[in-house]
């Protein structure tokens, strides 16, 4: 039986690039960031942008387990069998960083049940600026902040802002209304992140999630190269 094989192979450790049956596993990208910064909306937009070309699945880690998953289901961005929710015991950062076992199970179950997959998006529950994904769980991570959360967030730094592979500053359309200085945010982010990329986006604009989706496509191309 396929599953027998998958789980009896001795090398089934988290970060292996291959599945135990020798095929390449899906690229896993984590999306973290504070509550309300637009992680779920970004995931939904990414799914719409990529789903026709790639085989996708999403794992959510909401504080209240199913809320994000249900948003994605309502929006019908993916069929329900491609969305899994992980309970986090009120500690979403633990489930993506310190004890990633439940998330790994969820990712692997999705690959077993609806695979083969090209990309799994793992969305963290809204947490704080220190929450980052374990390298044992994801291959790359996106940190999503928004202009309404204060334009000093890039300056304050923290592991998410400083080390994420991509920093997304979301809801730029709100900047004039909340008095956020986008130029200052860009400069602070540059100072914190050196050469690491930053995307400013408004999902309400025509471009929408295009920049982030281009970045994900580049990652996918590198993964499958």
């Amino acid at each position: 039986m396929h599953l027998d094989h998958a789980h009896s192979a001795p090398s089934a450790v988290s970060a292996d690039a291959q599945r135990p049956d020798g095929t390449r596993r899906a690229l896993r990208i984590g999306l973290g960031g504070p509550v309300g910064s637009g992680k779920t909306a970004t995931v939904a937009a990414l799914c719409r942008a990529l789903r026709d070309q790639f085989s996708l699945a999403v794992v959510t880690n909401d504080i209240y387990t199913r809320e994000d998953a249900e948003f994605l289901l309502r929006e019908a961005v993916l069929p329900p069998e491609r969305i899994a929710a992980v309970e986090t015991g009120a500690c979403p950062h633990t489930a993506i960083r310190d004890d990633i076992s439940a998330n790994l199970e969820a990712v692997e179950d999705l690959e077993d049940e609806v695979g083969p997959l090209d990309l799994v998006l793992v969305e963290s529950g809204g947490d704080n600026l220190t929450a980052t994904f374990s390298k044992g769980l994801v291959d790359a991570q996106i940190f999503v902040i928004d202009v309404a959360g204060g334009d000093d967030i890039p300056r304050k730094g923290g592991p998410g802002v400083t080390t994420a592979d991509l920093l997304v500053v979301n809801k730029t359309d709100l900047a004039p209304y909340v008095g956020s200085d986008l130029a200052r945010m860009a400069a602070d982010a540059k100072a914190q992140r050196a050469e690491l990329p930053v995307v400013f986006q408004s999902l309400r604009s025509e471009a929408g999630v295009a920049d982030v989706s281009a970045w994900v496509r580049a990652r996918l191309a590198a993964w499958t190269a």
Binding site: T88, G89, A95, D98, D99, I100
Partner: peptide, 11 residues
């Protein structure tokens, strides 16, 4: 308690 075996999510 930090052994990464999923216990933290169960009450």
């Amino acid at each position: 308690g930090r052994f990464p075996a999923g216990g933290h999510a169960h009450s």
